[in-house]
């Protein structure tokens, strides 16, 4: 068992399954929590996602 490799990848590799989709639900939920926890981080991320979406609108 190699702890530095992703465990799900290792599991599916050992089973010989190639096309699978694993959703890292808890990690994603944790990231959203972290972003909401810190005011500065939240501001930066929000600002960026807004500017990104506005850029996308412009290019369209």
């Amino acid at each position: 068992m190699n702890y530095e490799k992703n465990d799900v990848d290792e599991l599916y590799k050992s089973l010989g399954i190639k096309d699978y989709r694993y959703v890292e639900i808890q990690e994603n939920e944790e990231i959203i929590q972290i972003i909401n926890k810190w005011a500065l981080v939240k501001e930066i991320i929000n600002f960026c996602s807004e500017s990104q979406s506005s850029q996308e609108v412009k290019t369209k």
């Binding site: 990690e27 944790e30 972290i34 810190w38 981080v41 991320i45």
Partner: peptide
């Protein structure tokens, strides 16, 4: 730890 998680995402 939390910030490195944010960077990773």
């Amino acid at each position: 730890h939390e910030m490195s998680l944010v960077f990773k995402s």
